[in-house]
């Protein structure tokens, strides 16, 4: 019997799906951690990115910070924070928030700052306040790019939440780490098929949401 057959058997076994350590509960955990991380990162990164984009200065700082954050290895932060703070949710969430900030920040900044200054000036000439310019002109135009950043961050977080199981948490990574610990390769494979499928499905959902949220006037763009 080869690995794929074993993997298939594992998937076909109803016991793999139910219960506290089953696929469904791991999936919910995985989505829960990812959602929490993205929420915190978005609350930090999106306003900053949008404001810097609106002011049209300080862009170099944003790009520099994002680049530095991108270079930070998440596994290193995770282990460092775990030694520092101990077991629990805090250490991995902190490490993953740092991972998610870079794409969200650059997306928000790039989206808003790329709005044609002529359009912004026209709005200003019509007597719109800065807040109105931001919410009625810049943000609607910037939606596709900002959303691109959100999609990117979501994919990275979904992929990386797997390593939270390296400490003591759940999520789909649990199957990978537990499978590795007892040399059960088929379970590792199953875990990664699930993670890949989740990423593909979520990306498709987000792509759909992006279409719905974008102003029809922008949809001609590639």
């Amino acid at each position: 019997m080869n690995v794929l057959e074993q993997t298939w058997k594992w998937f076909a076994d109803p016991a793999s799906w139910t219960g506290a350590g089953g696929i469904w509960s791991r999936l919910v955990e995985h989505l829960g951690y990812s959602g929490l991380v993205l929420l915190i990162a978005a609350v930090i990164a999106l306003p900053v990115g949008v404001l810097v984009g609106h002011r049209r200065s300080g862009g170099n700082v944003v790009v520099g910070v994002a680049g530095a954050l991108r270079a930070l290895p998440t596994l290193g932060l995770l282990t460092l924070f775990a030694l520092w703070i101990g077991l629990g949710l805090t250490a991995p969430v902190l490490a993953l928030v740092l991972l998610a900030i870079a794409p969200l920040l650059t997306g928000a900044y790039a989206g808003v700052s790329a709005v044609d200054p002529v359009v912004v000036d026209a709005a200003r000439a019509q007597g719109l306040t800065e807040w109105q310019i931001l919410t009625r002109v810049e943000l609607p135009v910037a939606v596709p790019v900002i959303f691109g950043g959100i999609r990117n961050a979501t994919l990275q977080v979904i992929a990386t939440v797997t390593i939270m199981a390296y400490i003591d948490l759940g999520g789909l990574g649990r199957f990978l780490i537990d499978g590795l610990a007892v040399r059960d390769y088929s379970r590792m494979v199953a875990s990664m098929i699930l993670a890949a499928a989740l990423a593909l499905v979520l990306d498709a959902v987000l792509a759909g949401a992006q279409k719905l949220l974008s102003s029809p006037g922008l949809s001609k763009e590639d």
Binding site: A82, L83, G86, L87, Y166, I167, D168, R174, I177, A181
Partner: peptide, 20 residues
């Protein structure tokens, strides 16, 4: 059961000491 992946290392000891 709490799976801790440090082979009985510092995290496990810490979890024991803080009663996790």
């Amino acid at each position: 059961f709490s799976p801790i992946n440090d082979a009985g290392g510092p995290l496990t000891v810490q979890a024991l000491l803080d009663d996790t």
